[in-house]
């Protein structure tokens, strides 16, 4: 069997706040093949974001190991993580806080290309302006967007800018942490369509964290349900939606608000 793109074993991460030890992750095992689309769902505090931060090398586990392309990233010092930074890019929930308000959109998007760690991993002849034009076109923003500042854009457009920045170094993996939670329902569809298209056209491996099960169902073919720092149920998305095994998964599914087209008296 070939080595999966991502592998995690007995991953734990504990935080100490005011003398109390809080286990955010309590032993997570995970495998993700290249080209897979993994959705991670659970309530706030279930450890979803902690898990992806460890996968992206933004944080270190207190126990257990993470391998990326066969290399144990949890043991490498930051200066040797350039290959990970170039291959794995993130999109965060709130584009109001994930984009620097003092930088022009063009600078924001090309910043990964200028990063000392990342640029050594890229071909030496990357034309920043050309790549900028490419990714702006890929996320459906006008070319003149590059000269403007983030506050001049709507929420949906800002999330497109964040996606464009993530795409700039041509990553293999895109990690999206609640990518549409801060967006209006009407804008959500556009961003989801964009993500679907980009993942297909660039052959990306996708990891999506969300509390919205419908979003994950739409984007991902594999699902991991987290609760209190553990994965309580995992498998193909379609089968978990059709036949959830755990009570917790059933409760999550039942909580998704649905349109009651018959009015509230006949619920």
């Amino acid at each position: 069997m070939t080595e999966p793109l991502y592998r995690a074993e007995a991953l734990t991460r504990t935080f100490t706040t005011s003398g109390r030890v809080v286990p955010a992750l309590a032993g997570v095992d995970l495998e993700l093949a290249r080209g897979g689309r993994l959705g991670i769902v659970g309530e706030s505090g279930s450890g979803k974001s902690t898990l992806v931060r460890l996968l992206a090398g933004l944080d270190r586990p207190t126990g257990g190991k993470v391998w990326f392309e066969g290399r144990e990233i949890s043991a490498l010092p930051e200066r040797e993580l350039g290959f990970l930074r170039a291959s794995v890019q993130l999109v965060f929930q709130d584009p109001r806080s994930s984009l620097n308000p003092r930088m022009r959109v063009g600078q924001i998007i090309t910043e990964p290309l200028r990063s000392r760690l990342v640029r050594r991993q890229l071909p030496a002849d990357v034309d920043h302006q050309q790549r900028l034009a490419e990714v702006l076109a890929a996320v459906d923003l006008p070319p003149d967007a590059a000269d403007r500042y983030p506050h001049e854009f709507s929420g949906g457009q800002r999330q497109r800018i964040a996606i464009a920045r993530a795409l700039a170094p041509k990553p293999d993996v895109l990690i999206a942490d609640e990518p549409v939670s801060a967006l209006d329902v009407s804008v959500r569809a556009q961003v989801l369509n964009l993500l679907t298209d980009l993942v297909t056209s660039a052959g990306l491996t996708l990891i999506v964290v969300s509390h919205d099960l419908m979003v994950v169902r739409h984007l991902c073919d594999q699902l991991a349900v987290m609760r209190a720092g553990r994965i309580v149920e995992a498998g193909p998305t379609a089968s978990i939606y059709a036949d959830p095994q755990q009570d917790y998964t059933q409760a999550l599914l039942a909580a998704v608000p649905r349109i009651r087209s018959t009015g509230r008296d006949q619920s």
Partner: peptide
């Protein structure tokens, strides 16, 4: 902004 939510109430 969420139609599903409004239909609940």
């Amino acid at each position: 902004h969420d139609l599903a939510v409004v239909s609940q109430v």
